[in-house]
Amino acid sequence: MKPISDFATSLKFLLTDIDDTLTDEGLLGAEAYEAMWALYHAGIKVIPVTGRPAGWCEMIARVWPVSGIVGENGGFYFRYHGKKMHRHFFFDEQTQATNRAKLNQLETEILKKVPGCELASDQFCRLMDLAIDFCEDVPALPKSEVQKIVDIFVAHGAQAKVSSIHVNGWFGDYNKLSMSLKFLQHEFGVSAEDAKKVCGFSGDSPNDEPMFQYFPHSFAVANIQHFVDQIKAKPTYVASQRGGMGFTEIASVILKNK
Rank of each mutant, 00 (worst) to 15 (best):
I4A: 10
S5Q: 02
S5N: 02
S5R: 05
F7I: 02
A8L: 12
T9E: 07
T9S: 06
S10V: 09
K12P: 09
L15E: 03
T16R: 10
T16W: 10
T23S: 15
T23C: 15
D24G: 07
E25N: 00
G26V: 04
A30C: 06
Y33N: 06
E34C: 04
E34V: 05
M36A: 02
W37H: 14
H41Y: 15
I44L: 07
I44Y: 08
K45A: 01
P48L: 14
V49N: 06
R52H: 13
M59S: 15
V63T: 13
W64R: 12
P65R: 09
P65F: 10
V66G: 05
S67M: 14
V70Y: 03
F76P: 00
Y77Q: 06
Y80D: 06
Y80L: 13
G82I: 15
K83W: 12
F90G: 02
F90C: 02
F91E: 06
D92E: 04
Q96H: 09
A97K: 07
A97G: 06
R100Y: 08
L103M: 10
Q105T: 11
L106Q: 03
L106A: 05
E107D: 09
T108V: 14
E109C: 10
P115N: 02
P115V: 15
E118W: 07
L119V: 04
A120V: 03
S121I: 11
Q123L: 08
R126A: 02
D129K: 03
L130E: 01
A131W: 03
I132G: 04
D133V: 13
D137P: 12
D137L: 12
V138F: 13
V146N: 00
V146W: 04
V146T: 02
V146H: 02
Q147M: 13
K148G: 00
I152R: 01
V154S: 07
V154I: 09
H156E: 00
G157P: 06
Q159S: 00
Q159N: 00
K161G: 05
H166Q: 05
V167D: 01
N168F: 06
W170Q: 00
W170Y: 05
D173Q: 01
N175Q: 04
S178D: 00
K182H: 05
F183E: 00
Q185K: 15
Q185C: 11
F188E: 13
G189A: 15
G189E: 15
G189P: 15
V190R: 15
A195D: 00
K196C: 12
K197M: 10
K197T: 04
V198H: 05
C199Q: 11
G200R: 02
D208M: 09
P210R: 03
M211A: 02
Q213V: 11
P216A: 00
S218W: 12
S218I: 06
F219M: 10
F219C: 09
A220T: 08
V221C: 12
A222Q: 08
N223Y: 08
I224C: 03
Q225M: 14
Q225A: 13
K234S: 09
T236A: 07
V238N: 02
R242Q: 12
G243N: 08
M245T: 07
G246S: 02
S252E: 01
K258Y: 14
K258C: 13
K258S: 12
